[in-house]
């Protein structure tokens, strides 16, 4: 059980935690926090991948791109969540029941 396996384990556990948060919560902004947590876990996986294959600079290029995309996704998701707040008055996911079938 060396350091790389510990990192891999931590990455998988964090992805599980993020997905768990995303699925079980009732608060719109907390869903976004779950998304962020999962993407941080993916960043951790890229860091350990860079260390294992020796090409740390390429890994850093990937991580920087992922962080830029993460910011834009957070912005768009918060924008949609705030528009939903303006329509419904609260940030409850249980409001989103209009589309059925």
């Amino acid at each position: 059980m060396n350091m790389e396996f510990a990192f891999l384990l931590a990455g998988v556990l964090l992805i599980l935690a993020g997905c768990f948060c995303l699925i079980r919560t009732y608060h719109l902004l907390k869903i976004i926090i779950g998304m962020e947590l999962s993407m941080k876990a993916v960043t951790l996986l890229f860091v350990i991948a860079g260390r294992i294959n020796g090409n740390m600079e390429l890994s850093q290029a990937f991580i920087i791109t992922i962080i830029v995309i993460e910011v834009v996704i957070t912005l768009v998701a918060s924008g949609v969540a705030l528009d939903l707040y303006k329509k419904y008055g609260n940030l409850d996911v249980r409001n989103l029941r209009n589309l059925r079938g």
């Binding site: 990455g11 992805i15 993916v42 996986l45 890229f46 991948a49 294959n53 990937f62």
Partner: peptide
């Protein structure tokens, strides 16, 4: 992305 990271690892 996790799949990509695992491939990149190798």
């Amino acid at each position: 992305l996790s799949g990509l990271a695992l491939i990149f690892m190798q």
